[in-house]
Design a protein around this nucleic acid. Structure first.
Length: 216
DNA sequence: CTCTCGATGCGCT
DNA sequence: GCGCATCGAGAGA
């Protein structure tokens, strides 16, 4: 039931629910990537929900196509897509079969296999290995080969239970990177661990002496 | 710190 | 063709 980290596989039940609950519920879980028998892993610290054909920012808003097919399938599988000609992004499919929805993994706190991650992200500090959706896929060697992979039962890329976060440690905010509009500006479907340094667009945890605070 | 811009390829109109 | 759920370099304050 446990490996050396003391955690078993994540239950699919955690993902077969409404996507906002799943996006919150994925924080604190562990994402594991096995490469050549080597274990790479990180704690999920930032997620975004993309929910159904009515969500203008969700790829499924364009309907069911070869690209979005995985999102229409059962929960717990990987939806991996290619963006801006050079980056891959990893999503966890949620909700029941037929409901196209997924959670984008935007930030990880690296836990195991740092040497391999550093090799795949040359010239970057440890803080910059996995603090963004494109970065973490690069660090973990995630690309189209893993599209559709079962993240519950698979053995190349999978989720472990970890420890879900208490409500007070979860911060909600608008999703990043969408062109402006109602779905971009007002819908708070991004979630991250309060104060965690591996969140994308994060500011330093402790401002240096003399730093100005943003007026608000 | 902030802002702007280019890289680069695929899905869709 | 156009636009994109990104990233990193460079310039300026």
């Amino acid at each position: 039931m446990t490996n050396e980290t003391g955690m078993g596989r994540l239950s699919r039940d955690v993902l077969a629910v409404d996507t906002l609950a799943a996006a919150r519920g994925l924080l604190g879980r562990r994402l594991v990537r096995m490469i050549d028998g080597q274990r790479l892993s990180g704690l999920i610290v930032e997620t975004e929900a993309y929910i159904g054909e009515a969500d203008a920012a969700c790829h499924a808003s364009r309907g069911r196509t070869a690209r979005t097919e995985v999102m229409y399938g059962p929960p717990g599988h990987a939806y991996v897509y290619f963006i801006y000609g050079m980056y891959w992004c990893l999503n966890v499919v949620t909700e029941r079969e037929g409901c196209p929805a997924a959670v984008l993994i935007r930030g990880l706190e690296p836990l195991e296999g740092l040497e391999v991650m550093r090799r795949q992200r040359p010239g970057r500090s440890d803080l910059e290995l996995t603090n963004g959706p494109g970065k973490l896929c690069r660090a973990l060697g995630i690309d189209r080969r893993l599209n559709g992979a079962d993240l519950i039962l698979g053995d190349e890329l999978y989720l472990e239970e970890g420890e879900p976060l208490p409500e007070r440690s979860v911060v909600a905010s608008p999703r990043i990177g969408l062109k402006t509009g109602e779905w971009a500006d007002t819908v708070p479907w991004r979630f991250h661990v309060a104060g965690n340094r591996y969140v994308s667009h994060a500011r330093p945890a402790v401002p240096r002496a003399g730093a100005r605070l943003k007026t608000g």
